[in-house]
Design a protein around this nucleic acid. Sequence first.
DNA 1: GGCAAAGATGCATCACAGACGCATCTTTAT
DNA 2: ATAAAGATGCGTCTGTGATGCATCTTTGCC
Lengths: 139, 139
Amino acid sequence: MKLTTQTDYALRTLMFLATQTRRAKVADVASLFGISVNHVAKVVNLLVRGGYIRSTRGIGGGIELAQSPDEIRLGDVIEQMEGDLHLLACVQADDGCVIHSFCKLKGVLAQAERVQREYLDSVTLADVVPTRRQLGQVK
Amino acid sequence: MKLTTQTDYALRTLMFLATQTRRAKVADVASLFGISVNHVAKVVNLLVRGGYIRSTRGIGGGIELAQSPDEIRLGDVIEQMEGDLHLLACVQADDGCVIHSFCKLKGVLAQAERVQREYLDSVTLADVVPTRRQLGQVK
DNA sequence: GGCAAAGATGCATCACAGACGCATCTTTAT
DNA sequence: ATAAAGATGCGTCTGTGATGCATCTTTGCC
């Protein structure tokens, strides 16, 4: 039931970028949270592929949000980072369990996933952005 | 976001026991699902500690449900097997993240956990028990 | 009392995933 | 051309879960 730390970093990175008015550097994110530049870079790259972040290489480059914070749904971001997040494999496909064909559990688990996902999709990045004042006190 | 196979086995074991009219043996469960007796025994032991199953040692012993199927909530069983299932550590305690004090994300994640848990607690074992007819065709 | 059935437990091994770091490649402004 | 900054791939380390083996404990039955 846990999220990976990559997902954690991804969410924090987006929260940070949402407070910035101009491009930031991966190194800024890493130093703010005290984590490795390498890991942030990987996470950022996934977010770029997902279309949440726009990156610019070279001198003066950096990263910035590619969408408005109120368009970025947390459920989508989490799925982007976690991949398929089924509680049990049998929810998505026949996993060879002998009772799979008539087992009602998979429907229940599918619904459990759905209610959580729907809630997470009702929350956007804009709902969790810290104020610049708060972030400023950290540095 | 995944459940362990132990939890999977636990749920299947309960579903099976709910169809039985008398004590079954751990070996019966293991052979029905084609899994190791050792693992089932461990899972069963956890369920006994949780009060879901009653076990009897010795000749003629075995296991049986300790509660009525409609009293066994799936959310409780899953928690029993998985332990604390927080999406991120920061939901439960300060994990040292520099923005922990004012981060709104932890509240959102706590709510995401809650909606799923509430749904799972609204479903009982009685809702997912297969018919004896169905199980009979497996053996 | 002894034996055998059945669950309880602990230990060891194995495999896999996630976390983390290093090294290198690619792009681009100046 | 050079240096900045992101993109990527490789390798190691560690923790957890899965699995199996061995042993202990309880208890009914003869």
